[in-house]
Amino acid sequence: MRILTIVKQVPDSNATIKVLAEGKGIDFAGLKLVADPFDEFGIELAVQLREKRSDVSEIVALTLGGEKAGETLRIALAMGADVGVHICDPKLETKDELFNAAVIAEAMKKDAKGFDLILCGKHNIDLDAGAVGPAVAEFLDLPHVGAVTGLDVSADGKHFTARRRIEGAEEVVECDLPALLTIEKGLVEPRYPSLPNLMKAKKKPVTLLTAGDLPGVAEYAETTKFVSISAPPPKPECKFIEGEPPQMAKELVRLLRDEAKVL
């Protein structure tokens, strides 16, 4: 069984995001970047599958973006992936999800050995978008199961049963491999790569691909257009009304009418 995990580099969830002038984009200068925590679930799951089974031959981690995105592959390799594929092109960082999914699908087509299981996060935390996984599956004509919270791969490695949480219930899906799964929080807890593994990761092979290597990509066009980005308005300050309940109620009504002007 060969497993591909797709990893995206995103700003750390606690980083303070600054918007460039005129809403042209995010200011990446000095911004702490990490591997998307949901994508890490995919890597962890792949590594755990290998630990549990004897038929996982290779785990490939794939990312796209400028040179810096390569750091994300190091994390994946330190966690246990064997080889990395880096579609190295800073322009891809501002392309929309469908475009990037097409790029990934093209890169996968170039891989002669093929993949039995493709894993990525349910969504990415940067733009809260989750189209890449399903779109890759579409481009490659593979089945896709989203937001997986439980997984059981059959002993022969040909089928799997996945559980996914849906509104008020749990859905159980049976499906054949190869397939693409996006992983929800809670299925696995990503490991903290050990230092020797971080060192070893530096020596694992990473294949660099550029646009020139993926001629098929030219056929795709972006389907969305970036207009501008803006920071959310600062939270207005909380007002505490003090006193006895009757006065407090009166004051509340006054504030709602005179200040908030909602009454």
């Binding site: 750390d12 606690n14 980083a15 303070t16 702490k32």
Partner: peptide, 10 residues
């Protein structure tokens, strides 16, 4: 990532 163990924004 945030230079403090609770992940408050630096």
């Amino acid at each position: 990532s945030n230079a403090n163990p609770w992940s408050f924004s630096p």
